[in-house]
């Protein structure tokens, strides 16, 4: 693991590394799912983009934009797409199995023994501590993905507008994602489509 390298390197173009086999995918997704207390997404970004470099930040955002638009759990869709991209259906299923198998076993065992540990103060405290860390992981991930917008054809003003609107509509007005995502998605698509057409005319 290189530690002397600048961690905030700007990655563009294609990713420098790839998984060696579907088994590699299965193991990697198992490891990252098991670190996902309070959400797997931030851990996935850290492991797949920053550390393993199987994906650039741009590719991560692209895949996640699509994953959240489709029905199904976002991180599950994301793991399917990434697995599929490297090894086709086998890869998709390996990544999916890695994401779900061990956590499923753990959560079912917890459900079976729930009454014996519920209400234990140290356990509640530990969960709270891990919850705070997962909030920090999420915010840090959003910060690290922010520079990918620099290359966006819509330009900084539109980008700020759409990001700001998403934050305002969901965090302040509490509108359901089911409305916000299609609404801003269609508007964003139109603006980007016009920007790309203008870009191509100027070329």
């Amino acid at each position: 693991m290189p530690t002397d390298q600048d961690p905030i390197h700007t990655s563009s173009g294609s990713a420098p590394a790839r998984p060696q086999s579907p088994a590699d995918l299965f193991l990697t997704f198992t490891v990252l799912a098991l670190q996902g207390f309070g959400g797997v997404l931030a851990v996935a970004q850290r492991e797949l983009v920053d550390r393993k470099q199987w994906l650039t930040r741009e590719e991560f955002i692209e895949s996640y934009s699509l994953a959240q638009l489709l029905p199904g759990p976002n991180v599950v869709n994301l793991s399917l797409m990434l697995g599929d991209r490297f090894f086709g259906l086998r890869g998709a299923l390996s990544a999916l199995a890695g994401m779900l198998t061990m956590p499923l076993v753990i959560v079912i065992v917890l459900a079976a023994f729930y009454n014996q540990f519920a209400g234990h103060a140290a356990i509640a405290g530990a969960l709270r501590g891990m919850g705070a860390v997962s909030a920090g992981l999420m915010i840090a991930m959003a910060c690290r993905l922010l520079p990918t917008l620099r290359a966006n054809p819509m330009g900084p003003l539109w980008c700020a507008l759409f990001a700001g609107l998403a934050i305002a509509l969901v965090a302040v007005l509490h509108l359901p994602l089911l409305w916000v995502v299609p609404m801003l998605g269609v508007a964003g698509w139109c603006v980007a489509r016009i920007a790309i057409a203008a870009e191509e005319r100027n070329r």
Partner: peptide, 13 residues
């Protein structure tokens, strides 16, 4: 247009 149009919203979310 889909990938670049949705990226700012995704990061906001």
């Amino acid at each position: 247009a889909f990938t670049s149009g949705l990226a700012p919203m995704t990061i906001g979310l």
